[in-house]
Design a protein around this nucleic acid. Structure first.
Lengths: 199, 199
DNA sequence: AGGAGCATGTAATCTGTTACATGATTTG
DNA sequence: CAAATCATGTAACAGATTACATGCTCCT
């Protein structure tokens, strides 16, 4: 009966994550959109990937909200590089966000789903797909370990220790997947060889 | 110059994942929308969560595509239970999907991001948040292990072996997070205690 | 001058989420 | 019968992805 209640605009507090990833990156170093994109492809992007389209969109919102501003040096023309820096309000926003709770986004993994599908419609090509993923994760793991060796040889201040923890998460995750894929491959190959009863 | 080329409708091949998760679940056992929702909350949903709204939407699309149909027994009235079963075309679609490659969705993890933010705006409340996540992952791990013990005591046919591999992935993932969080907590506590130079 | 590539940006679409709406069934 | 609950759905929106469009710079 009562008319639909007003729908509050959620944009004020920035409850979602991407803008905070960008604020963090900009506090580490003022950058343009493409520079951010490239830095996301390395470090931060391993745990929160973003394309340049997303980044430009968020930069626009952050600028409009007064959290960042374009460095005066850069012209605002189309193909011109435009660098941003964080304003005090932006730092405050990031601090507020970091003082709250971060919910874990549910995992979505199509390969695992395919295993379940294979239990119903058959395992054709399953071993090849497992091997493909194994190679991918081994490559990613090698890349993480190379970064760790290069950037974190000797432990330094708290900032670096925290950043190293992030990298350790990447190493641990990839290590897990490599192990699990090897286990899965062995199991599937054993099935193909007619290992146990049941088929 | 040249007018925009026709945009192909992507709906024919169902290139995305959710419908295939539903087809798998329906092949295991014909179900209604809410039953599917509950089964997703257990098993499959651990690696591809879906709310009942998503499931109803996908059920509608799958029915329209001729991949599933409502069991004739059920009335098509509003609050009435409506059970679906997979048609041959649906099984073929799932088989085709399972014979292809499954891309890994990029991980999105806000907690790790927060660690990086903490390196820039300070670590206030970080240990509490780490502890909170540790408790969550410990609980999830315990739940997985309980399921494993209950449902997979003795190994049976290939179907169960595959499903067990899925569960092993869950166990391994949670185990990793528990370990990493413990490592991170120790590191952060050491920093608070003024462990090393740099602050 | 012309072309390659850099840099910023727009448009359309799809997936997932949140909030709400409505019909049926059970239970006090 | 009224309230609680089960079950199916609708609407609106936010986040992410893909494809495309446009301006600038540098190099030959």
């Amino acid at each position: 009966m009562a008319g639909r209640p007003e729908r509050r605009p959620v944009c004020l507090g920035f409850p979602h994550v991407p803008p905070h990833a960008i604020l963090t990156a900009l506090l580490e170093k003022p950058s343009s959109g493409l520079e951010l994109t490239r830095r996301f492809d390395r470090s931060i992007g391993y745990f929160w990937p973003a394309t340049h389209q997303q980044i430009y969109r968020e930069l626009g919102k952050l600028e409009q909200a007064g959290f960042i501003r374009a460095l005066p040096s850069a012209q605002p023309s189309r193909g011109q590089k435009k660098e941003f820096e964080v304003l005090p309000a932006g730092r405050a926003e990031l601090t507020a966000w970091a003082s709250g709770e971060q919910d874990t986004k549910p995992v979505r993994n199509a390969l695992v789903l395919r295993l379940r599908a294979a239990a119903v419609v058959g395992r054709a090509g399953l071993d090849a797909e497992l091997r493909r993923h194994l190679a991918l994760h081994e490559r990613q793991l090698a890349q993480y370990e190379e970064i760790e060796e290069r950037d974190f040889g000797a432990v330094a201040g708290p900032e670096d220790r925290l950043r190293r923890l992030v990298l350790r998460a990447g190493v641990g995750l990839e290590t897990f997947w490599v192990q699990w894929l090897q286990e899965a491959l062995a199991e599937v190959e054993d099935m193909e060889a007619g290992g146990r009863p049941g088929e």
